[in-house]
Design a protein around this nucleic acid. Structure first.
Lengths: 350, 350
DNA sequence: TTGTAAGCGTTATCAC
DNA sequence: GTGATAACGCTTACAA
């Protein structure tokens, strides 16, 4: 059996043959063509084109030990994965930036605690060069995993225990990108104060997420001795916001402003206020957080809210990660962290 | 340089050495262990455990020509990617089913027309075994691409031109999974009729998506000679629904019911109706489509809507695709299509 | 500047 | 049953 018809996809060998060069030279051209005479570069490029050659990814990975892929791990046991516009935008930012670097996005959704075994095996299997993760809960097993197997990882949102003294960790402290939640919250509350509001309530997020606790801290920074009755806990969903709002109205019927820890909860609160006949912003001023698309602007009235550049944060996570993956970089293996600024967007609700 | 310290991750070779067998036997055990004496199986398993061996994916792919990964292509130029709860749930279904089959999900977001070159290169590069795609617009280049490179693909939602006579296509007609949009729409409209509504309007989705046109067709099936003024076009977003609702109210102030082609538009319509002082369902009955989580149920009043099993559809797409990937299957390379049933969920809005 | 050749870690085809 | 050994397609010293 000689003289076989060109069976599957063309290989580098075929390209080299057609261009009349060695496989090595063909490889050089495919990878940029530095140090190859223009003459040959053209020949090889032509061969690539006629043959429709596309490099075999597995073969390349096998030798370079680089996969050109990054895992995006979304560990959110709750129903809100993806439905939350926050994730959507961050993913979009991540996707764009990865694409710009010719890197693929492998999505790993974690639904159950038991999924972590699978995640660890996957990450350890050399399928990806690095990982991006979100929504770390205080007892999340992920950091231990990525650390153990030495997988460079950047987190979205400040982890709950980043302050731990952990100098012995293989790659230093965790790296993350987060918005200035505390500062943003302060600005929101100060704004309400400046508008003459006196009984400013807060609908907080789940206490095991730093984005929630940081916003609560910001609220407290301004209202140092606020009545604890003015604080109710939600879960970042509209329904949770509605429940919290009902509670607050019960406990403090005279409140004249609400700062909700995210826009979704703010919309829930809005519904309850309307039901109870409180006008917004007349009787009660309402400020959200996120400036979530399809939510903040289209609420009635449109939400005054704290904007964070979610897409930009996604892009930043990628840049941090890829930089740490580059052996030539000084920052090799230590991604570092970044806090991005927020800004208050004033609309109709406050 | 002999006597090297166990440098990187352990290889099959190392496992074999430790277990005192050949690499071939070790490989057999790792891949199920059929035809190997229990005695040796145990030894190899033990070695795998102590060494923390994880197979190298690239090496395996190189020889088996199977990547164990599937691309999920989301080609939605609009802002609603992911923010739309519909996608979220379908992705969840897909993710769960892929996980159950030990297959990875590679996410490819298409934002611009120019992205298709990249997508084609990626698919042709042998990174994935098959593809799943959504939201096909009438002139979408994707089917031509997947067909050209022979990539098994299952679509979410009926493509616009599936009816074309295309027997010559390499792998037969496109395969897809879709809900019974037309039947569901009929049921919704019939329900409104049965409740005594007489001026039933429709807020349609974008005419280049079959889910929208199929629902419109269902509406027309029941209301054969409905006044064209009763039909307004939206874009599947709340804002679009609001605009359409305003138009309808302008043109047909006496309408007493609205069937919106999705829940998001229904919520937009709801806001406008409320603003205009029309009670729901008193003055105007409102029915949506999707039974979108965090949307339908939490609307005020909660939305009567047509439910489709979105997550189930996602799972089904995966099953169809994986079946077509299995060379042992009779259905090899021809995924086939499925239409899943819908059901009317009656809540407060109609 | 170009070619030769040695792997990268697996699976698969053979003999044994 | 088990073990050599030849691919798989590519990159990269090293030699020329």
């Amino acid at each position: 059996m000689t003289e076989q018809v060109p069976a599957g996809r063309p290989t580098l060998e075929a390209v080299a043959a057609r261009a009349g060069v060695s496989r090595a030279t063909a490889s050089r051209v495919v990878n940029g063509g530095d140090g190859v005479r223009a003459h040959l570069v053209d020949k090889v490029r032509a061969a690539v084109l006629d043959l429709g050659y596309v490099p075999n990814h597995a073969a390349r990975t096998l030798v370079t030990r680089r996969t050109g892929a990054v895992a995006v791990i979304i560990a959110e046991p709750e129903i809100r994965i993806f439905s939350d516009p926050f994730f959507s935008r961050q993913i979009r930012g991540i996707s764009k930036e990865l694409t710009a670097h010719d890197t693929q996005l492998v999505l790993l959704l974690v639904e159950h605690r038991g999924d972590y075994g699978r995640i660890e095996r996957y990450l350890a299997g050399g399928h990806v060069d690095g990982a991006l993760a979100f929504s770390l809960h205080t007892d999340d097993p992920l950091p231990a995993i990525t650390r153990r197997i030495g997988m460079p990882t950047v987190y979205g949102g400040r982890p709950g225990w980043t302050g731990q003294a952990d100098g012995a960790a293989p790659y230093g402290p965790l790296s993350y990108v987060d918005a200035d939640n505390r500062g943003g919250a302060r600005e929101a509350v100060r704004y309400l104060v400046s508008r003459g509001r006196r009984q400013i309530a807060h609908i907080a997020g789940p206490p095991d997420q730093t984005s929630a606790t940081d916003r609560l801290d910001g609220y407290r920074d301004v209202l140092v001795d606020a009545d604890p009755a003015l604080i109710a806990e939600g879960d970042f969903t509209p329904a949770g916001g509605a429940r919290a709002m009902a509670e607050l109205l019960e406990r403090c019927p005279d409140l004249d402003a609400v700062f909700a820890a995210n826009d979704l909860m703010a919309t829930g609160a809005l519904g309850v206020l309307r039901e109870r006949g409180r006008s917004v912003p007349g009787d009660v001023a309402l400020v959200g957080f996120d400036d979530a698309e399809l939510v903040a602007e289209s609420a009635v009235p449109p939400l005054t809210t704290v904007r964070q550049d979610i897409e930009g944060m996604g892009r930043l996570m990628v840049r941090l990660l890829l930089r740490s993956l580059d052996p030539a970089q000084e920052s090799h293996r230590v991604p570092g962290s970044v806090i991005t600024p927020t800004s208050l967007v004033v609309r109709g609700s406050a």
